[in-house]
Structures are given as C-alpha cells and as structure tokens.
Design a protein around this nucleic acid. Structure first.
Length: 427
RNA sequence: GGAGAAAUGGCAGAGUGGUCGAAUGCGCACGACUCGAAAUCGUGUUAGCCCCCUAAAGGCUACAAGGGUUCGAAUCCCUUUUUCUCCGCCA
C-alpha cells in the first residue's frame, strides 16, 4: 500500500513511477476526497470537543441540583450531527483506502519501464550442456526411470498434477533438504506454516483483492471470502504476515526466516503446449526465504537473497541466468525483482526457478508491520522474499542437464548425502 | 463440536455509567545523592489522526475487534475473535 501522504505531496512523481509499471492513474479524485476528508475531520472533531466539554460539566450541575434536561436535548442534536459526519467520514475513508489498496508498488528508480522484453540479464552461470548423444526430454527421462508418474497424477487429480515416486521422490526430497540445510547454515529460522490462510494474509502480501481468483478457496457455508481460507500460492503469503500488527524491536532486525511448503495455484489459462511434464502444475514444492529489515538495510538484504539463490544453483551445478526485471514484469507488490532462470535443454529456453524481490514498505503498510528504534520512533519494516528454491523446474532441468548416454542421470554431489550416497539414478 | 471463565498501558493488576488515557506495583529513561554502584528520592515513560514553522501548545480517537443503548461507556447489551478450564471427537 502506498502512503497517502506521499501521493498528496507528490502526485506527479508517484504517477510517473507507476506509469513504468504500465499503471496509469489519475489521482485527482482521491486527492479531492482526501481534502474533503480532512475538512470533515476538522468539523466533527470540534463538535466532539464541545460535547466532551459539556459532558464533563454535567456531574457538577447535577451535584448543584441544577436542571440538565435542556442540555441533554441540545446534546442529543449535537450527537446526531456528529453521527452524520462520522458516517460520511467512514464512507470517504473506505473509498480512499480501497483506491490506494488497489495501486501497485512503485518500482525502484533504476528499473527500466515496460515488460519482459526490457528484462536485463545481469549474470550467466555455466553454459548450455552439449551432448554427444541424442538427449531426451525430462518427461521421457522421468518416465523411463520411473521418477515421476504423470499419468497416475492426472488420474488422481486431473491435468496439471503429477506424483513423485521412488528415487524421484527421494531426489525431490533431497533437493528440499539441501536447500533447508543451506538456509540453516546461514542462520535463517525454519518455519512450517499452515497451508490454508485467511483473507488478511492475501491482502497483506498484496495479492488481494486483485488476484484473489487465482488461488484455491476452501468453501464454507458463509460464502464470504473474508471468512474463508485459501490454499497458499507461495509460502511468502504466510511468512510476510508473521508479524502483522506487531511492533518489532529494531535491535532484532533483520529477521530471517524460510519455509518449505507446497504452492497451490490455479494457473488458469496459462498452460502452454510446450510446457509438458512438470513445468507448470497446480501444486509444486518450494522453499521460500523472507527477510524483515530496517528500511536503511533492505538493499543489502536484497543482494544477500539474490546471492543465496544463485549459490544454491551453483552448488547444484546447473546452468542458469539471472535477470533484472523491467518494472512492468515485477509483480504488483514489488519494487524490484530479480529472476533466476534455469536452462531446460529440451525446450531450448530458460525457466524461472527463483524470484527475489524487495517490497520495501508496501506489504508492511498493508498488514501494519512496524519496528521501533532506539529513538522510539515507529516505522514500517521492509519485507523481502526470494525462492530458495522452487523444485518443479529444477527437477526437469537437473535430469536433462545431467543425463548420460545410457539413460541414467548423475546426481549432483551436494545432493548425494541426502540420497544415501547414491551417485547416479539408473534403471 | 458443547458448557463455563476471561481479555485493561512493556509486564502485573485496580477500576461496574460521568473531571479515567486510566490507581498502584514492577520494568525502563533521565536527574539528585555517591569516588562509583546498590538502596533511596524526584521527574518522566502508548499510539494513530487533525491543526501546524517536519516546533510548541491544543483538539479528536483508542481499555481484544465490530456494532448498539445513553446527554455521556473501560464500565451496560449484542456479535465476532483469542486465551484458559471441563466435556465430546480425533491423526
């Protein structure tokens, strides 16, 4: 959520910034509403001051045995006036918040405007593997080695679902274990959150109200989404709301946490023919990192998260590239996003396995997460998040990049301790 | 899921219709005393908003949340949430 004060003081600057994200806004109506709001506040508060003053005198008058009926009558009309103004004020406040809550975050100044085509590759690790045999695609490899059962996954739950089995399940679990062990080494706190979250979490993370149709809702008899729960689309939605409404002691910042959860997404309409296998599913596993920082230190935290995600990929030995996203390709809540994309040989393209973002105070303002410093001043924390990592693209990339001529797949060294020392998966 | 009890400032805990933003204690901060400390004494110690010289003073709001009764609500009523106790069910 953007600061109404910032919009009031500098509407041109804000609208210029949002334009980079492809969001064209006219602040005139909201500024007018805000001015009206202030006028009403002034009016209603002076009426309330009057009421309080008279109320304080009533017990004394009563004590002196003076009549108070007349005053009561006056106060009643005063009370009615106050009530009318208050409800007008409530309505205005609601309209203003609804408008502001619908605005995306402002992108950082150094981002290029526009969409994907303006993303900028800032780093490449490794290179495309070359095979001296005819390489297979991950669907064929996983099926041949019986790592993933696509057909039975579909039988159980329909399109977009698969199941890991045998060494496939072990490999998946080894990846997750490896990520977890690395985060623990770096001093992050391990969290296992609920997978069903309340509406407020979606709002706080900035995914609602706009994208509330893109998650799975658990229906109940109320029919009211504000009371229902949804399946989390990413652990970020949970982690970023951990301290909602709380005041964190600045000395404790930065807070570093991570979680493993499956991610549940509708992915409506985004399935593409070339995305076979497990490239895009309704449920995939991800380890997510989140940091809460002091505003002065979120830039370093961002670099740290990017570095951590890259390091995981490098330890696995996977060829990837790191891109700085253009403003329009960052999600609504984020001021800055870097994507890690892994090379999928059979598709001939890079696919996202991690997205590291800084929301600045956008999420903290939505869910009221604040810190208190030495100077006793309150401020909104900055929240950052990054996948570390999502397995559903790493798995195919891994089996494809590390496949051998005999149809086997070499297990990256860092994963072997988590697979009982096994070095290769073969029939 | 059912029954009962409760929710007040950083913490503990008073307050059951009116000068209550809230006694008292603890904690914390500053000052005095001290060579220094402890003890003691004194002062202070919530946040949001409005106004505004990003000052001071002033005003409004907030006693779990939301609504209601009333001239006036921490206090009475309703709803919700959370916690505790008991019962039921259960991986």
């Amino acid at each position: 959520m953007l600061d109404i004060k910032l919009i009031t003081e500098n509407p041109e600057k804000v609208s210029e910034s949002l334009k980079k994200k492809g969001c064209i806004v006219d602040f005139k109506p909201v500024l007018e509403k805000n001015a009206k709001r202030k006028a009403i506040i002034g009016e209603v508060e002076s009426l309330k001051a009057q009421r309080n003053k008279v109320s304080a005198q009533i017990p004394q008058l009563k004590k002196q045995g003076l009549p108070v009926e007349e005053i009561f009558a006056e106060m009643r009309t005063l009370g009615e006036k106050i009530e009318a103004l208050d409800s007008e004020l409530d309505a205005l406040n609601q309209e203003i918040t609804d408008f502001i809550a619908g605005l995306p975050n402002m992108p950082d100044d150094d981002l290029l405007p526009g969409e994907k085509e303006n993303n900028e590759v800032v780093k490449v690790f490794g290179k495309k593997p070359e095979f001296d045999f005819e390489p297979k695609n991950h669907v064929d490899i996983c099926t041949a080695l019986n790592l993933i059962d696509y057909e039975r996954g579909t039988k159980l739950s329909g399109g977009g679902y698969w199941l890991y089995r045998g060494e496939g399940a072990q490999l998946e679990w080894a990846l997750l274990n490896f990520f977890i062990s690395e985060h623990l080494k770096d001093g992050y706190e391990f969290i296992l959150p609920p997978h069903m979250l309340g509406y407020n979490c979606g709002f706080g993370a900035g995914q609602f109200p706009k994208f509330s149709d893109e998650v799975y809702w658990i229906e109940d008899e109320s029919g009211d989404r504000k009371k229902q729960r949804f399946m989390l689309p990413t652990a970020e939605t949970a982690l970023v709301n951990l301290y909602a409404g709380e005041i964190i002691d600045a000395k404790k910042l930065p807070l570093k946490v991570f979680a493993y959860t499956p991610c549940y997404r509708k992915e409506a309409g985004s399935y593409r023919a070339e995305e076979r296998g497990m490239i895009r599913g309704h449920q995939f596993n991800k380890v997510e990192m989140v940091q809460y920082t002091h505003p002065d230190h979120s830039k370093e935290a961002f670099e740290e998260l990017v570095g951590k995600a890259c390091s995981l990929m490098e330890k696995l030995g996977l060829h990837y590239r790191l891109s700085k996203l253009a403003a329009g390709d960052c999600s609504a809540s984020m001021a800055r996003t870097y994507d890690i994309e892994v090379w999928i040989p059979s598709m001939g393209i890079y696919k996202e396995v991690s997205s590291v973002s800084n929301a600045n105070d956008y999420q903290a303002r939505r869910n009221n997460t604040r810190f208190k410093g030495e100077d006793k001043k309150l401020g909104f924390v900055h929240t950052l998040n990054g996948s570390g990592l999502a397995t559903s693209r790493i798995f195919p990339a891994l089996v494809e990049q590390f496949q051998n001529a005999d149809g086997s797949v070499t297990i990256p060294e860092v994963l072997r301790p988590f697979m009982g020392g096994k070095t290769v998966i073969k029939l």
